[in-house]
């Protein structure tokens, strides 16, 4: 399967995403440039990587949304193509209206860069099928603006539709206030759109893909994509 990783001015996890994707048999990653107006014809999945696109000016992700390539990304998503936004990629997806809600300044005001534990709340998605339902993953976060916010109706709808895919929990799998690293509502770490093809998450699975580097719990996001396409093409 072909995965395209978009490079915006200020992206800094594009190489990590490429490296992680390369580790998984069956994925051929390639970079996409933010000024491209057309996508390669055989693309199966687009990753919007982490970083500080356009310097986070105005709001995180607010300017990247107007990049030429985002029009193509939107059409790709509208046609059911898989889109994964990690960290700044998640912020871009909310600014673009491809995912509901917004990501606000962390409640404690600090940039936080450390490993957290997140629980897989829905493993029936193309991005999480390699995990067990309720599996707890150890994956790093690195952000200053990761406090997920949406109005109460939206949060209720996300919960009812099982669109909350990842939730911050403690080591015993409890979504406590202490295990919430940024003040996100309902400890939300990642959500998927209603159709189930656009996922945004603040944790960095691409930084947790080799045990030697601390954890390989993030690799499942990439292997899930391969499982999904093997299943679809059969």
């Amino acid at each position: 399967m072909n995965v395209g990783i978009v490079i915006f001015p200020g992206s800094n996890c594009d190489r990590d995403a490429y490296y992680a994707a390369r580790l998984v048999a069956g994925i051929t990653p390639q970079f996409l440039w933010h000024k491209d107006t057309e996508l390669p014809a055989d693309l199966d999945c687009i990753i919007l990587p982490g970083g500080f696109s356009y310097g986070d000016y105005l709001r995180s992700g607010a300017i990247a949304r107007f990049s030429p390539i985002m029009r193509a990304v939107r059409s790709f998503a509208d046609e059911g193509g898989l889109v994964l936004g990690i960290c700044n990629g998640f912020q871009i997806l909310t600014e673009a209206g491809l995912l509901p809600g917004a990501l606000l300044r962390n409640a404690h005001q600090r940039f936080v860069c450390r490993n957290v534990t997140v629980r897989v709340e829905n493993n029936a998605t193309p991005f999480t099928s390699a995990y067990g339902q309720g599996q707890v993953l150890r994956i790093p976060i690195a952000h200053g603006e990761g406090r997920y916010y949406a109005d109460p109706e939206t949060i209720a709808r996300l919960e009812a539709n099982r669109q909350v895919v990842f939730r911050y929990v403690d080591a015993d799998s409890n979504p406590t206030a202490e295990s919430n690293p940024n003040g996100s509502l309902a400890n939300i770490a990642g959500i998927i759109n209603e159709r189930g093809n656009v996922l945004g998450m603040m944790p960095h699975p691409e930084r947790a893909c080799q045990a030697l580097l601390g954890s390989d719990d993030g690799l499942g996001v990439f292997t899930s994509l391969v499982h999904y396409f093997a299943h679809v093409s059969v």
């Binding site: 709001r59 909310t94 606000l104 916010y149 949406a150 109005d151």
Partner: peptide
């Protein structure tokens, strides 16, 4: 459209 995010 841009200067403010109506969600927040």
């Amino acid at each position: 459209e841009l200067l403010a995010n109506p969600v927040i």
